[in-house]
């Protein structure tokens, strides 16, 4: 029994979880600020950190209560120290430091992206019979702030194969949703609108960036803008569902093709999806259908930001000897590899 209490506050979710042996979710508490930020069409950092301060202690207490464990049952404390919003990260890191110091627990700083990948190690329900992913794996991390293709050859061994050269995939979803007046967050809004749309009704470009594993979504965003302007200039209504479907298909096409190319090149045993955009059903369906290798992705509630994944990553890092000192500081643009 090696239980880790994990804390995650990198963006707009205040989260704490208790994880046993890096795989079993004993509790997973997420206080979402989504409704607070929806009014602004995005996360407002100052509002976010104020909310974190208000909710962090109740969220930690609830995580312990739900897991039915006390402080003495814990082996270590894991916390996200980057990447993310500085003010938000600070609340989690300082809380974790104070708790670790007071309770004499080792502290393990975790990279948020590492956490997203390790969501694929979690068992849901806690005693679910499931094998760990076998290395090497190719993992696509897609979220509001990231689009990274990672080769993972062992625990803690990450190599970045490519990432976005401009906007993150999730950011493109948010911005296009804003252009189409679909609201925030953009991912679920576009997915819903796309359901009744025909992706072939309008044509949108794909940035393939051949010979690299880099991504670019800014040109696609601009094409959607141009399209909406053209409809407006002709006095026509924008076919929102068709544009949403065409946009989603364009993003999914590029993500899936490049990820599977990388899986072939590095002869991956498995392909993993991670991050908020991994909740997108079109992405999941397309990659599963097109891949010759097993594809694994977490359930939706472990794709979006949560602390359970930080507990999983923290456990394997702790096993590997990682210890963070009291000088642990936030790193807003922390890279994985």
């Amino acid at each position: 029994m090696q239980r880790i209490l994990a804390i995650e506050t990198s963006c707009d979710e205040t989260a704490a979880a208790v994880i046993d042996e890096g795989r079993h979710v004993l509790s997973n508490v997420v206080a979402s600020q989504e409704t607070i930020h929806a009014a602004y069409g995005g996360v407002f950092p100052e509002v976010a950190s104020r909310q974190h301060i208000l909710t962090i202690i109740p969220v930690v207490e609830e995580a312990l209560t739900k897991a039915n464990v006390g402080w003495r049952d814990l082996a270590a404390l894991a916390v996200t120290y980057g990447p993310g919003l500085a003010g938000s990260l600070l609340v989690g890191v300082n809380t974790a430091k104070a708790l670790a110091l007071a309770r004499h627990l080792p502290l393990v700083g975790v990279n948020h992206l590492e956490g997203h990948i390790y969501a694929n190690w979690l068992r849901v329900p806690p005693n679910e019979a499931k094998e760990d992913p076998r290395f090497p794996v190719v993992c696509l991390i897609v979220s509001g702030g990231h689009t990274d293709l990672i080769l993972m050859t062992g625990h803690g061994e990450f190599r970045s194969l490519g990432s976005t050269l401009d906007d993150a995939a999730g950011e493109a979803f948010d911005k296009v949703a804003r252009m189409l007046d679909l609201g925030y967050p953009g991912g679920p809004a576009i997915q819903k609108a796309a359901q009744s749309g025909d992706p072939k009704a309008v044509s949108l470009p794909r940035a393939w960036l051949p010979g690299t594993y880099g991504f670019s979504f800014s040109g696609l965003k601009t094409s959607v803008l141009r399209l909406t302007r053209e409809y407006a200039a002709r006095g026509e209504k924008v076919p929102v569902a068709d544009v949403a479907a065409a946009f989603q298909t364009a993003v999914v096409d590029v993500l899936v093709t490049k990820t599977l190319q990388a899986a072939d090149e590095y002869d991956a045993t498995e392909v993993l999806l991670a991050g908020g955009v991994a909740a997108n059903t079109a992405l999941r369906a397309a990659i599963t259908e097109q891949s010759d290798r097993p594809v694994r992705y977490p359930p939706i509630w472990l794709c979006t930001d949560n602390a359970a994944m930080i507990g999983a990553a923290g456990y394997f890092a702790w096993q590997g000897g990682r210890r963070s000192g009291w000088g642990l500081d936030v790193v807003p643009s922390l890279a994985l590899a």
């Binding site: 906007d167 950011e171 911005k175 252009m179 800014s218 601009t222 803008l225 141009r226």
Partner: peptide, 29 residues
């Protein structure tokens, strides 16, 4: 949105000799 602010900034980065990709600052501000 889409007017070219990031593209222009990528050019400024190139002119300054920045080697890494200048990517959107939206997520981290």
């Amino acid at each position: 949105l889409g007017a070219g602010k990031t593209v222009l900034t990528q050019g400024i980065g190139r002119g300054l000799g920045v080697r890494e990709a200048v990517i959107s600052p939206t997520f981290t501000l």
